[in-house]
Design a protein around this nucleic acid. Sequence first.
DNA 1: GAGGCGATTGCCT
DNA 2: GGCAATCGCCTCT
Length: 227
Amino acid sequence: MSQDGPLTGAALLELLSRPAPEVAPRLLGGLFGHRNGEGAVVLRITEVEAYGGPDGSDLPDPGAHTWRGRTARNASMFGPPGHVYVYFTYGMHHAVNLVCRPEGTAGGCLIRAGEVVEGAALARARRAAGRARPVPDAALARGPGNLAKALGIDLSHDGAPLAAAEDTAAPGFFLRPARPESGAPVGSGPRTGVSGAGGTPEFPWRWWLLGESSVSPYRPAVPRRRR
DNA sequence: GAGGCGATTGCCT
DNA sequence: GGCAATCGCCTCT
């Protein structure tokens, strides 16, 4: 994939090399897109969460998949920045993170929600699969599982590189962060669905654009009942 | 090798 | 608001 737009590629890598809680708010309002053989879907990011590293690291995060160290599943989170970490959960949902921090250190930003600004027809078709009712446009990419589905993302994309600008011909991912001076009102709070210490107000590592209908509702982690 | 559970979602009551 | 669906990964035996 064409990796380096002249200046933007370097700027993107510089941004993504920082700790995730620093990067995440900067992603709000930016564009994130994915193109494959079916076409491209592009989002304006409206909700993100930051995740850190393992116990004993310089950014320990008991709510992160990396908390117990590197495994085959989370290896991408320890990889170089400017790539994506895709995981599969609940037996049916995928979610996508942008890997942050230099290689060897773990961190990432979970893209939780966005407003579809390009490829809405394709996103609608993907989201409609297996459903009785149509999906409102504001909900096409509301929630990490829905967002991954709208973008056509699955485990085969884990570790894929991120380009700094959209190449309208090449398949793959691209990211265009928001301009730092864009002063849109932002909310922040505890991360959704994170259990244990990582879900406490001490980790207010979720950010969203206020007043956006595509932002997912907050849900605290619910301990699963035993059968 | 087995068992538990999850950075969720959508339907049902 | 409650809860089933569904399976790969992780932990423990």
